[in-house]
Design a protein around this nucleic acid. Structure first.
Lengths: 105, 105
DNA sequence: ATAAAATTCAACCAATCGGTTTACGAACGG
DNA sequence: CCGTTCGTAAACCGATTGGTTGAATTTTAT
């Protein structure tokens, strides 16, 4: 969990993920729009891999990367725990339930 | 965005948030279950504040903290962009919609 | 056989992180 | 007033991060 959120905390890594949501890309393609060396981009990719967010298939000298969505689902579920705090309708429901508890005894 | 995900990347900070989801807590109360000094916990809290996840009300010598859910909603929305990649039902729905588009003209 | 391409590795660097300890300040409780 | 409590600030430390450059590796193209 730490690793997933940490991976998402860097803009370049989020850019990589967003582009991988469209299609598979090689390391070079992922690095191209980023204003940094290929080596630096390669390291960012390794962070995403360690977080389980990206998997790589090596064919010849090309490393083709694809999005691995499962950890994002986990993170989403984690955030969902807090949904009632920002969702007005659920807040209202909660208020009703608390009121019920109060009148119960 | 960077700041929010970075704030979520540390277990102690997530523990603070989870507890604040239940009720308002002082800095000392937030620090108590954490195996670290009060000063360290105070710094973690500042990270959460800078990310906009916590707001503090100072009354006397007590600093009462409460959860500020908006950035979590933002993060959730960001993750939602990837939902189709892990949600089978939405994938199927998307396929249907694409098929509809195809048959529409 | 050679050169070019795609990528990683290794060494290095400055900056940030996560923690400590000590000192400090402000607000209570007697 | 005095001691205690609640919390931050400052200085310090080792580890990690995010970047660089240059060399190494492997594959492909000519």
């Amino acid at each position: 969990m730490d690793a997933v959120f940490h991976a998402l905390a860097h803009g370049a890594r989020r850019t990589m993920l967003r582009r991988l949501a469209g299609r598979e890309l090689t390391v070079g393609e992922l690095a191209e729009p980023l204003e940094m060396s290929l080596a630096a981009a390669s390291k960012h990719l390794q962070v995403l891999e360690r977080a389980g967010l990206v998997r790589r298939t090596i064919t010849g000298r090309r490393h083709v990367c694809r999005l691995e969505p499962a950890p994002l689902a986990t993170a989403s579920a984690w955030l969902n725990f807090y949904r009632r705090h920002w969702d007005d309708r659920l807040d209202a429901l909660e208020t009703l339930l608390i009121d019920d508890e109060g009148t119960d005894r």
